[in-house]
Amino acid sequence: METNLKEIVLNNSDDIVRMWLEEIEKNRKHDYTSTISDELFESTNREFVNVIFSSLEKKGLTNDIEGFAERLINLGWPLSYLTDGMQAFRRVTINYILSQSTKVDTDYFSEILSKVDEWVDPIINQLVNEYSGSWENIVSLQKVALQELSAPLIPVMENITVMPLIGTIDTERAKQIMENLLDGVIKHHSEVVLIDITGVPVVDTMVAHHIIQAAEAVRLIGSTCILVGIRPEIAQTIVNLGIDLSKFPTKSSLRKGFESALEITNRQIVELEGQHKDIEELIDSLDGE
């Protein structure tokens, strides 16, 4: 039975392909592929159906499926294009086989459904697996990139670095802050690190605890941590919560923190023609003034 059914499909592949392309074209009006050029859409469909028939002829999954799925992923085509295409192939194939039979009983109809499912389902599963693997890889890379961007350590002057924090701080991000902070201090030979919390909307007990831990870790490796960006409402919250920040310096702005960092590193702003202006501009740019 299986051999006969496959022979019907393979021997009449031109008719089945034509019917499949007609159905795909009909569905195009209702999905995103309507924005794709006719040439690209047609060539992709031809490649798709060739991959399907190649799998049938070789009696199993092929590398062609993997390569085709990878190309579509790179082009940004959704998985629905592939799954819808395979379901259309299933319908067209079943209908064509039935149209070639003079007499169809329940057993024969069930056998056709079963055999076509055996051809189509493994292809769908492989396509889904290819897409899932690609998405997992992309999400993993994006997560790493976001983690790096969420806690950057920026060297602004010899031995002085700044870590601007923006957004909420949870346990996972606090861990990333700690790692970036310690790695950056050693990498840049920082004597002073300015942690700027101007962009942190809420400083509660947990956030303050993480910041204190980070500052203490910096102190243990021989550097000084200055917490800057203490807005009035943040200062009031810290006092109300009874949080002790007396172990390391705090400043209301990045400008004041940078001035303290210069003093700690035995430097100061002096009135020299040209140079004083440059330093003032640097401080203003750091403070966003």
Rank of each mutant, 00 (worst) to 15 (best):
G60M: 10
L282N: 01
D278G: 12
G229N: 04
N74V: 07
T3Q: 12
G199P: 02
E130K: 11
W20E: 06
A215N: 02
D121C: 05
L61S: 03
N95S: 15
S132A: 14
N12W: 13
T93S: 08
L127W: 00
G242D: 05
D14E: 15
H210E: 13
V128H: 01
G67K: 11
I264L: 08
R71G: 03
V203T: 07
V144P: 04
G85K: 01
L149Q: 04
E39F: 08
N63W: 13
R255F: 08
S99P: 03
S55P: 04
N74I: 09
G85R: 03
G184L: 03
R18P: 00
L72C: 09
M157P: 00
L79P: 07
S54K: 15
M206E: 13
L72P: 00
G60S: 08
Q275C: 13
S13I: 14
H209L: 13
S110H: 11
L181Y: 02
V185D: 01
V104K: 08
G67S: 10
E281L: 10
S55M: 14
E289N: 08
E280R: 04
S253G: 06
W135S: 08
D287K: 01
E2W: 10
I279W: 04
A151I: 03
T102W: 11
W20G: 02
L272W: 14
I226A: 05
M157K: 09
E39P: 05
N74A: 12
E281Q: 11
G184Y: 07
V144W: 03
N129V: 12
Q213M: 15
V128K: 00
N11Q: 15
L146V: 12
N125Q: 15
N180M: 06
S140H: 15
I166E: 05
E47V: 03
N11D: 13
L5C: 01
S285Q: 10
V9K: 07
I197V: 10
L282V: 02
L282S: 02
F41P: 02
E66D: 15
K115I: 15
S43F: 05
V49P: 00
T33V: 06
